[in-house]
Write a protein that binds this DNA or RNA. Structure first.
Length: 808
RNA sequence: GCCGGAGUGUUGGAAUUGGUAGACAAGAUGGACUCAAAAUCCAUUGUCCUCACGGGCGUGCGGGUUCGAGUCCCGCCUCCGGCACCA
């Protein structure tokens, strides 16, 4: 390589650091652009996923800056969390040491990538001046009834020894460590996100600049179902229970009812009956079973309570079962079972010999068991013959008239469990007093500092619980003895508002100043991995809505545009330490340079798609930069002074075409086609030099090329900018325009088709008329030989690109 | 099962509005330069038939619409991702 990327890159990184181009302040007189990459967990070293993320982000920061925007591009650290704590358990060192060392190392690598941020705004969630506002936010939610403590069956990870949010359980396993999750009954802190379920769902429609995939995932997660809730009477008793159904139209087909094992009515129903012992045994087994075991059971299992309910539609006595395929946490924890129209109920009914009645007419060719589709009602009294939508309406109206039920909406979304029985997190600012109950720590006593301890090992409760000096305190309300909450917060709390803090990061009077947020918010472009499609993005939307309702956040939706980048894979698998297939960027900074690496990430495929790592690709982009270098420094050949020729104007036109292409491609996030436009221009310019370039034409074209490359490969671009005689800083130069007239081609290749197949080509003026084009086509010897004696039935002319002759 | 997305050369991929399929790279092969190597430069590179000119075929599969389909419509197949005893 003939250019010294190591020297050039290091030199420019230093110069950028001392220039203040990317340090910004709110300025109502200028259009703003808030450009944000998801802040990273400080894992120690950058991986290719980070490189891809920050390359896209930095390209945009530099491009928008050149376009004249006031660009806010901050960087920070999601620095609480389990990996640092687990490392601390292994080494005995405090997680803070490890975390801060890794932050130092990663920020150094980010600088070596040439990515620019307003480092004055850097924040880290493990620092008291940040997590103090986590605690403030918690108390704000607590005051509004949006944070509450409740005993509930929770997901317990036996390996990490902590509870997990619903969102952190993937197929019954801990998202982080993969251990099978157990169910425990514990008293835990929750955020009442379910109160926002409808708003969170509705506002997905406003997020037009989000990927459809992410919007769908959020809709699925919120899981809205419309239906009816109605009351069933227990026969020979005053007892009743409610059931929820999305198919009230099938109520005539209810041939049994099911209660979840945890349903409070179960004990009463079976009291002193023969079934009591069997039911109790079943309940115990269900309580102990993990989700995996319950699902692995295969066949639906349950026990008959010996009791009956009355189907209100036809007064039929139907048996009541207890079965664990009904979940206490959804709907009412009890269902009407309609085996004819529900496959789960069908499986259960078949196993226990319960009647099956079809209440929806399946299509003639239907070959399943339960028919869950649409169709006219049958065996259903007053709704027979009606279609599903109408049947539902009639039944709901009937239930309402009878006073036994009404229309209901249910959500799959559960409240967000935020307590963690771990050390390396933000302490929950609550004190428990025997007399006063749960008392918030007064705002002027925040932050509740995370105390230093020596033993971080999890013991089934927070490691803080053994620290008497932390736990024992006085009640802020009555002054009596009281105990501090020892759980820490889920780190997703930290990341659910950091983008607001970036607008006013060193404020020690408030979480942020509404005026600063009003100028900068919403985030105009948010870039990150699709793995955050549900957890982080849903929580961040929720907390933003809470802050909006409090009059602090200026917007209800924090992220106007979301871009989710694809993963980097190697050998068909995601790059990860455990698979041992990581290609770190540090070696590539030395061997190929940051610019070549950045360009490779931009070039090798659509940014949304997963890309397989191919080191030859970095060779390719490095070779390209080397050609640019030799072109711009005159190594390939010198230009000469001479008058302008037609060929020179064509080169100018090419440079303008590349400008248009690169600009439009950046705007639509099509980086993998913007790079080839630059390669093509470079190749043309090299040919031009070899053919004897005119000095002024060449210099202008190279200047344009350097401007266009600047956001993608900033180091080499800045160096060439100076070497080609510019005294200004390239980063602050305006982005080039193009001349719309010049971009037009003067001549184009026109193809002539016979019956849709290309048979001849002509170079024609771009201004060719329909008549001229047709005449040229018909005059062609080759076309005539294709036509022969057959009749030309139709001529389609699309000047200047195409003529199609339809013959025969 | 439901929802979302994708199938194009040896490989990554391009074709933005229905109009020249394979841009730009990577790899491979041959050549130039060199004592040699690296680097660089030149040529070829979807496939089949043909000495060549040229032609046939070709964007997962089967149909359809159209003068014309990678692109639109219908029916499938495969892969990836999400949700899932959620009533």
């Amino acid at each position: 390589m003939s250019y010294d990327h190591q020297k050039i890159e290091a030199a420019w990184q230093e110069r950028w650091a001392s220039s203040a181009v990317f340090e910004v302040e709110a300025d109502p007189g200028r259009p703003k652009f808030y450009n944000l990459c998801m802040y990273p967990y400080p894992s120690g070293t950058l991986h290719q996923g980070h490189v891809r993320n920050y390359t896209f982000g930095d390209l945009l920061t530099r491009y928008k800056t050149m376009r004249g925007f006031n660009v806010l591009s901050p960087m920070g650290w999601d620095s609480f969390g389990l990996p640092a704590e687990n490392a601390a358990i292994a080494t005995g060192a405090h997680p803070r040491e490890n975390t801060e060392a890794q932050i130092a190392q990663m920020s150094d690598q980010i600088r070596r990538l040439g990515a620019m941020y307003d480092w004055r705004r850097e924040l880290a969630s493990h620092q008291p001046d940040y997590y103090r506002w986590d605690q403030w936010l918690f108390l704000a939610l607590f005051e509004r009834g949006l944070a509450y403590k409740a005993e509930a069956p929770v997901n317990w990870c036996p390996n990490d020894q902590t509870v997990l949010a619903n969102e952190q359980v993937v197929e019954g396993h801990c998202e982080r460590c993969g251990a099978e999750v157990e169910r425990r009954h514990l008293s835990q802190w929750f955020f009442r996100i379910t109160e926002f379920a409808q708003r969170l769902l509705d506002d997905i429609d406003t997020l037009e600049e989000w990927p459809e995939r992410v919007r769908t995932m959020q809709r699925n997660w919120i899981g809205r179902s419309e239906g009816a809730t109605f009351t069933l009477k227990v026969a020979e008793s005053d007892a009743t229970f409610d059931v929820f159904t999305t198919r009230p139209d099938t109520v005539f087909g209810m041939t049994f009812a099911v209660l979840a094992p945890e349903h409070p009515l179960v004990d009463e129903l079976v009291a002193e009956s023969e079934a009591a012992r069997e039911v109790a045994a079943y309940q115990q087994a269900a309580a102990k079973a993990t989700e995996i075991e319950r699902l692995a059971e295969g066949d639906k299992s349950g026990v008959f309570t010996g009791r009956y309910a009355i189907n209100p539609a036809n007064d039929r006595r139907v048996p009541i079962y207890v079965a664990d395929y009904v979940l206490m946490g959804y709907g009412t924890g009890a269902i009407m079972a309609v085996p004819g129209q529900d496959q789960r109920d069908w499986d259960f009914a078949t196993r226990y010999g319960i009647d099956i009645v079809r209440t929806v007419e399946p299509p003639p060719d239907f070959e399943g068991e339960a028919y869950v589709g649409d169709g006219p009602s049958i065996n259903s009294g007053f709704i027979d013959g009606l279609e599903m939508v109408e049947s539902k309406e009639r039944i709901i109206a009937w239930m309402e008239a009878q006073g036994i039920g009404n229309r209901t909406v249910n959500f799959r979304l559960r409240d967000w469990l935020i307590s963690r029985q771990r050390y390396w997190g933000c302490p929950i600012p609550i004190v428990t007093c025997a007399g006063c109950g749960l008392v918030p720590v007064p705002e002027d006593e925040l932050p509740v500092l995370l105390p230093d301890i020596a033993d971080f090992a999890p013991k089934g409760r927070s490691p803080l619980a053994v620290l008497e000096s932390f736990v024992e305190t006085t009640c802020p309300a009555c002054g009596g003895p009281a105990q501090r909450e020892t759980d820490t917060m889920d780190t997703f709390v930290d990341s659910s508002w950091y983008f607001l803090r970036f607008t006013d990061p060193s404020n020690d009077e408030a979480i942020f100043q509404p005026g600063e947020a009003a100028y900068w918010m919403p985030v105009d472009q948010y870039i990150g991995g699709v793995e955050h499609a549900i957890l982080h993005l849903l929580y961040a939307r929720f907390i933003t809505k809470v802050l909006f309702d409090m009059g602090l956040a200026p917007v209800e939706e924090p992220f106007a545009r979301l871009f989710t980048q694809g993963m980097i894979t190697l050998g068909g698998a995601k790059m990860s330490k455990s698979k041992g297939n990581v290609v770190g960027p540090a070696e590539l900074f030395s061997s190929h340079g940051a610019d070549a690496l950045r360009l490779y990430h931009l070039f090798m495929g659509p940014p949304t798609d997963d890309s397989a790592w191919d080191e030859n690709g970095v060779d390719g982009t490095a070779r390209f930069l080397d050609r640019v270098w030799r072109l711009a420094t005159g190594e390939i050949g010198e230009a000469v002074e001479r008058d302008e020729e037609a060929a020179d104007r064509e080169i100018v036109a090419e440079a303008h075409r590349a400008t248009k292409k690169v600009t439009e491609d950046i705007e639509r996030f099509s980086f993998n086609t913007a790079v080839p436009a630059l390669m093509t221009l470079t190749n043309r310019l090299i040919d031009y030099v070899r053919a004897g370039a005119r000095r002024q034409t060449l210099d202008e074209a190279i200047e344009r090329l350097v401007l266009l490359i600047a956001p993608m490969a900033p180091h080499i671009a800045h160096e060439l900018w100076e070497r080609t005689g510019h005294a200004t800083l390239l980063a602050s130069e305006p982005w080039p325009d193009w001349d719309a007239a010049l971009v037009q081609y003067e001549t184009v290749t026109m193809v002539v088709q016979v019956n849709g197949k290309v048979r001849d080509r002509f170079e024609v003026a771009a201004s060719v008329t329909e008549a001229e084009a047709e005449a040229i086509a018909l005059a062609s010897e080759r076309i005539r030989s294709w036509i022969g004696d057959t009749e030309v039935r139709k001529v389609i002319v699309r000047p200047p690109h195409l003529v199609n002759l339809v013959v025969g």
